[in-house]
Amino acid sequence: MSWIDKILPSGVRTGEGEKRASVPEGLWKKCVKCEAVLYRPDLERNDDVCPKCDHHMRIGARRRLDVFLDEEGREEVFTDIEPVDRLKFKDKKRYRDRLTAAQKSTGEKDALIAMRGTLQGLPVVVVAFEFKFHGGSMGYAVGEKFTRAAQLSLAENIPLVCFSASGGARMQEALISLMQMAKTSAVIERMKQQSVPYISVMTDPIYGGVSASLALLGDINVAEPDARAGFAGPNIIEQTIRQKLPKGFQRSEFLLEHGAIDMIVHRNDMRDTLARILSKLSHQALNHSEQEQEQEQRETEDGADVEAIEVDE
């Protein structure tokens, strides 16, 4: 059993951060996969991808949006949406208290952040899941914000990109969470009918209700390398079939092989790849920033493509 099997229960709740290695937070960070001790500025420059083994570390929603969107002209949208505890759900703790705690620790109102901005000059609406907020689970607030972001895309005829990372529907909102699957799927279907592009990028991990709705309905479905995505969690499947799961089960490579996604895209290439695709789908030219042009120039000159780094198993 690999490390991730151990920490991924059915609902996939445990944040990678908590189980992280023993190196103290600071200038150095240990890669959870190859255990190399990494110099933090190097890691950040590489979009939180381990320069040694290419492991894509989990990153928060804000960082995700930050590395993806053009620097200029970003605007966060739909910040007024708050979670609702319609059931007054209570287990050992009250859901309301759990929400307050999550809001305090993450600084977010709920698990989805939406922004409008540009990607290499193309106007886009982008949403990103914050996995540290209740395992990125989808309740009313997440479903509603996704839906409004999609409606904004529809109204302005600009593409929607979603970076998902979620354990599934949020249990504490029960059937309201389940119905967010129907709601988000319905608005995506409307985008499809009106030919407004929707790209779904799956990042580790995607399970349950989010997988069985918005994450797999992209015109283009993309996954980051080695991300896990599936309907049922590995534990549930193992308990049901009483068998060990094959190596690589529910990983991006498995999804690609079985036809669920169009491509696996390295985080370093995410901007370029998605911009290239969206430019073609929307018949619009890109407008590379000067910085990016310089970067491309450099890469062509010395051939130092990040993907060329060997991947340790």
Partner: peptide, 19 residues
């Protein structure tokens, strides 16, 4: 919840119906 279900895209099949 089984291997074959996941291989053939159980998530996508449900999502498609919702849409």
């Amino acid at each position: 919840p089984g291997i074959d279900s996941e291989e053939r895209g159980i998530s996508e099949s449900i999502a498609q119906n919702l849409a």
